[in-house]
Amino acid sequence: MKGQNLGFQGTPEQAEKLKKVIEEHKSTPGCLMPVLQEAQAIYGYLPIEVQTMISDGLGISLSEVYGVATFYTQFSLTPKGKHRISLCLGTACYVKGADKILAALEKKLGVKCGECTVDGLFSLDSCRCVGACGLAPVMMIDDDVYGKLNVDMLDDILQPYREGKK
């Protein structure tokens, strides 16, 4: 029963891109991880349709592909928000109160960590140390890093994204 994920809307261009990636890597030993990474870069996540293409293309069983995809936190089986918030929960950030920032973000966005807002604008995740410990506590929204956070700053930071200015 394929097509479990009714929301999947891959384009032929994306499929073509993925096919190329698979062809390029096929003969490299241990290529599954790089292919999954590039596939996620193309589609934003790794639904069953994408993993099936990879399984077929590389001749690796779907259960193995899925086992790898669910082992690493980087891989996502569900679509992410338009803007991806990633709050660092590394030690340096934790001792400086990152847990409080996370709780505040969860409340503001109305989602739990790991989820995506209903409007699809934000997804909220935690991560382990972005290596900017000097700025702790830190979060990333897409590729931008926001440091030395406190709860009161959050609305100002989120606003431009809400208004579509970022």
């Binding site: 479990q4 069953i48 993993q51 069983s61 779907l62 259960s63 193995e64 899925y66 086992g67 082992f71």
Partner: peptide, 17 residues
Amino acid sequence: AIGPIGRGYAVHIGAAF
């Protein structure tokens, strides 16, 4: 047909997806 899924305490055996 089956393999380990997820990791840590949540790891379990099953078919893909």
